[in-house]
Amino acid sequence: MNCKKVYLHICESLDEDLNSPRCREIRNHLDDCPNCRAYLDSIKKTITLYRMEPAPHVPASVHNRLIKTIDLSWKKGTRGKVTPKQ
């Protein structure tokens, strides 16, 4: 397997069964290719950085507005009808 092919499938090696034939080929290539190793490593670090980014929880005020909107829809019985935005 050459660098171009590894490049096209390298991301799948993050998702696939590590013992699949293609993954084994990629692993063999990575053993001998510092460029592809550095590339895969930088992809993994990119993913880690985004995964570590904090995400906000639903603020209480937003939750309350949501419940109010739903209550209103429920009272109006708007299932199957268009609900006006709050």
Partner: peptide, 13 residues
């Protein structure tokens, strides 16, 4: 978030 749950409610069936 609002639109999603209103849509869920409207399309429950």
């Amino acid at each position: 978030l609002q639109d999603t749950f209103v849509n869920v409610y409207k399309n429950l069936s």
